Amino acid sequence: MADASGLELVEQALGHRFSDRTLLEQGLTHASAEAGYSYERLEFLGDRVLGLVVAGLLLARFPDEDEGEIGRRFSALVQADTLSEIGGQLGLADHVRAASGVVNDSILADVVEALIAAIFEDAGMDVAAEFVRRHWELRIDAVTAPPQDPKTALQEWSQARARGLPSYHDIGREGPDHAPRFTVEVHVDGAEPVQATGASKRAAERDAAAIMLSMLDPESHG
């Protein structure tokens, strides 16, 4: 069982006092802790709650944008990088229970989703939605134009220059099951391959695409 004072600190950070603290404990517990429970089911639910609230906020905030533009905004706002950043700002890493004691960005992102679900289960949709609004509205307003995913941007750059589609290749996987690191290599015709490592294959591919695009960008303006 987690330390009561630690749980109280998390409640203060979240701005919600739980009626059922077992939900909070579950939301902070990784499967590797072998506690008999983990945040995985809550994470599944939290992903859906977050998605619903963010989608509603975006549709209300940008009534003139089409589905594709809203979709790009949505993807950037619910990606693991955004979630882990929020988890870091809330100071959650010090309170997550994991076997290694090391909480990477992927775990931190999962915990944020799990805690959104924990709030939802404890107090209902209105309270969970208010939590999401507090931590996402400024991010929504900060981006004036719909962002573009690096993989999409690289694909468009490559196709516009008749270089075909970029290809991504798995290079390796390291680390324990609860904190893996994936290395991916991206290939574009006429360019040297680029590798990147991330907490998920998707993150590694995105970072590799961003690096490749930054290398090719001077050529695109040439």
Rank of each mutant, 00 (worst) to 15 (best):
A2N: 14
S5R: 15
L7D: 09
L9F: 12
L9V: 15
E11D: 07
G15E: 11
G15N: 05
F18Y: 02
S19Y: 11
D20F: 07
Q26A: 14
G27V: 09
T29Y: 09
A35I: 05
Y37M: 08
Y37H: 13
S38R: 08
R41W: 10
R41L: 12
R41H: 11
F44V: 12
F44T: 14
L45D: 10
L45T: 12
G46Q: 05
D47G: 02
L50T: 00
G51K: 01
G51N: 01
V54K: 00
G56D: 05
G56L: 03
L59E: 11
A60I: 03
F62M: 03
P63I: 05
P63Q: 01
E67S: 10
G68N: 12
I70T: 05
G71A: 11
R72V: 00
R72D: 14
R73M: 05
S75N: 07
S75M: 03
S75T: 11
A76L: 14
L77Y: 03
Q79L: 00
S84Q: 10
S84F: 05
G88I: 01
G88P: 00
Q89H: 09
G91Q: 00
L92P: 06
A93D: 11
A98F: 03
S100G: 15
V103Y: 01
V103E: 07
N104W: 00
S106F: 12
I107W: 02
A109C: 01
D110C: 09
I116S: 01
A117Q: 04
I119A: 06
I119Y: 02
F120R: 07
D122W: 04
D122P: 07
D122V: 09
A123T: 11
A123V: 10
M125L: 15
M125V: 09
V127Y: 06
A128H: 09
A128D: 09
A129V: 07
F131E: 01
V132R: 02
W136Y: 08
E137V: 12
L138E: 15
R139H: 10
I140F: 02
A142K: 13
P146I: 03
P147L: 07
Q148I: 12
E156M: 12
E156T: 13
E156K: 09
W157A: 15
S158W: 02
S158T: 04
S158R: 12
A160S: 13
R161C: 10
A162E: 13
A162L: 08
R163L: 15
G164F: 05
L165C: 05
S167L: 15
S167N: 10
Y168N: 07
I171F: 06
I171A: 14
I171V: 15
G172K: 11
R173K: 13
R173E: 15
P176W: 05
P176M: 05
D177M: 14
D177N: 14
A179Q: 13
A179T: 04
R181L: 13
R181F: 00
F182Y: 15
F182M: 13
E185S: 14
V186C: 13
V188C: 08
E192A: 12
E192D: 11
T197L: 04
G198C: 06
K201L: 13
A203D: 10
A204F: 02
E205A: 14
R206G: 01
D207L: 15
A208Q: 08
A208N: 05
A210H: 10
I211S: 11
I211G: 03
I211E: 15
L213H: 02
L213N: 04
L213V: 03
S214E: 14
E219W: 02
S220H: 06
G222Y: 10
